[in-house]
Design a protein around this nucleic acid. Structure first.
Length: 490
RNA sequence: GGCGGCGUAGCCAAGUGGUAAGGCGACGGCCUGCAAAGCCGUGAAUCCGGGGUUCGAAUCCCCGCGCCGCCUCCA
């Protein structure tokens, strides 16, 4: 493809910038993953899906992407849970990492190139701490090591904070061991009965911020092209990562910081602590993965996204519409030789525009909402074309194939939406809804064929009665030239 | 209090200087045995309010109002 100028919003500059990797065609991207202490919720899914789209788009643009997403497998919350459950910390972490991986796979999130865990990189972290102590920006205090925030001049550059203001309004925990309340732990001494690793400062475990610096440097090098995560990580997590990494290497740590907006519920942030979250597991049980992706991607990634049942159902209907058009488009077969009809010509033109606009939308700071809008614009043109396509010419049938191919390549491969075979998608969704509603598949099929027989005999009274009966169970029927099409509504 | 963001039709949501994409819904029509879906049409005198800049602003600037996030672990 021709060169597309990709613009990405950089939190460091608070502007959209043209994306140019340090060492093309290589791109390094590190995204903060989860702390494995509990089930994932929709907010985690949003982050994963957003960066999944970024990953897919970068690859589409021809870059060779090293994509790292870490797991925090040791921290206070994991230890708490472990003590509460009487389960070893590593089993807790293992359980939730595996769950997360399964759920993300179900959501069609591509696996990153590396998924490192904190506890597998203790030596790297220890040597990073040593470097920081040597550099004079970290100090030991009673078996713990802290980063001295005032020793790093750039502190606050990402989050737009000034040290003086932070100190003034500091509500951070006051520890006797810290020289400055804002200093943060690089290495924590462990209490008795807590997991511990040997270190030059005694038994302990790494601080949270440290792992990302150590692992990103290991897998991506000392300067990352892209570092991502949720908006809520800007301060202090990413700020601290910059301080640690740049103080140690003397190099720019990250060239583009990318942050996704949070999910809200009734306008409030979705969070474990607020108890207002909906788990990914729950969502996957009720909705098709692509419904969830569509819901997540209809809003620009940097804006807050309010979770509502209606929002999800709207997404589901839109997705069904997409697949139904695909379903009929796939049935277009050449019935005669010849060129394009008028509606064929319009579709051909719409297809060209679609390809161009879709890519421009993604190139403009990953505007997935607009990319989806372009998809649905094309779908409308497909629907206008479909009635005349029943007697399709050879050229029209070829065009139908090209449309399918483009949708697969763009909406499918880049957004992860519309990737399934329409027939099996529809079948799977019928089955899912039947299960959810506890309906009787066999009975439905029988009633459908009884209705078909009645219609053949022009016994419309019986046919309509059956339709009403099925409608009462949530089924909508549609009589088409290819037979009766039915769906269970949300 | 500091830093950042948001406010666009009934709902959701793009658009960030040239006269309002798309989804869901509503209404009328076509199609249909009737429906459904689809298509066609209707629907924001106008983008929270008020000033300003400009030939021209939803888009830029200023002042308000309202909502949210971060400042503590958090995607």
């Amino acid at each position: 493809m021709e060169k597309v100028e990709f613009k990405l919003y950089n939190t460091l500059s608070r502007k959209k910038e043209v994306f140019e990797p340090l060492d093309p065609p290589r791109v390094t991207m590190y995204v903060c993953g989860i702390t494995a202490y509990d089930e994932a919720h929709l907010g985690h899914a949003r982050a994963a899906v957003v960066f999944d789209v970024l990953y897919r788009f970068l690859k589409f643009l021809g870059y060779e992407v090293t994509y790292v997403r870490n797991y925090t497998d040791i921290d206070d919350k994991i230890i708490n849970r472990s003590q509460k459950e009487g389960t070893p910390w590593y089993e807790i972490a293992e359980r939730y990492i595996r769950e997360y991986q399964e759920e993300m796979a179900a959501l069609k999130v591509l696996p990153p190139t590396h998924e490192p865990r904190a506890t597998e990189h203790i030596p790297e972290m220890i040597s990073l701490v040593e470097r920081l102590i040597e550099a004079g920006v970290a100090y030991e205090s009673e078996g713990e090591v802290y980063f001295a925030v005032e020793k790093f001049p750039g502190y606050g550059k990402l989050s737009g904070r000034r040290l003086s203001e932070l100190v003034a309004g500091a509500r951070v925990e006051v520890s006797e061991k810290k020289k400055n309340p804002l200093d943060f732990a690089l290495w924590k001494a462990s209490k008795p009965n807590e997991p511990a690793w040997e270190s030059p400062w005694g038994p302990g475990r790494p601080g949270w911020h440290l792992e990302c610096s150590a692992m990103s440097i290991k897998y991506c090098g000392e300067t990352l092209d892209i570092h991502g995560g949720g908006l809520d990580l800007i301060f202090p997590h990413h700020e601290n990562e910059i301080a640690q990494s740049e103080a140690a290497t003397g190099k720019t740590f990250v060239r583009y910081f990318v942050h996704n907006g949070l999910i809200t519920v009734n306008g409030e942030k979705m969070a474990k602590s607020l108890g207002n979250y909906v788990s990914v597991k729950d969502m996957l049980a009720r909705y098709h993965p692509e419904t969830i992706r569509l819901f997540l991607l209809t809003k620009h990634y940097r804006s807050p996204l309010d979770y509502t049942e209606k929002g999800i159902r709207d997404a589901e209907k839109a997705l069904y519409g997409l697949y139904e058009s695909l379903y009929f488009l796939k049935k277009v077969a050449p019935k005669r030789e010849g060129g394009l009809s008028k509606s064929g010509e319009k579709l051909a033109k719409a297809l060209e525009e679609f390809r161009e606009r879709f890519l421009l939308a993604l190139a403009e700071d990953l505007n997935t909402a607009e990319a989806l809008a372009e998809t649905f614009t094309l779908i409308s043109e497909v629907n206008r074309f479909l009635p005349t396509a029943r007697q399709a010419s050879s050229e029209e049938a070829a065009l139908a194939q090209k449309v399918i191919e483009s949708l697969r390549q763009l909406t499918g491969d880049l957004l992860g939406i519309g990737t399934e075979d329409p027939e099996s998608f529809i079948e799977k969704e019928r089955e899912r809804k039947i299960q959810l509603k506890g309906l009787d598949r066999e009975l439905i099929e029988r009633r459908l064929s009884e209705r078909e027989a009645a219609r053949k005999k022009k016994d419309f009274k019986t046919a309509d009665r059956i339709r009403e009966e099925l409608a009462a169970q949530g089924l909508t029927l549609r009589d088409t030239p290819w037979g009766t099409f039915w769906m269970v509504e949300a």
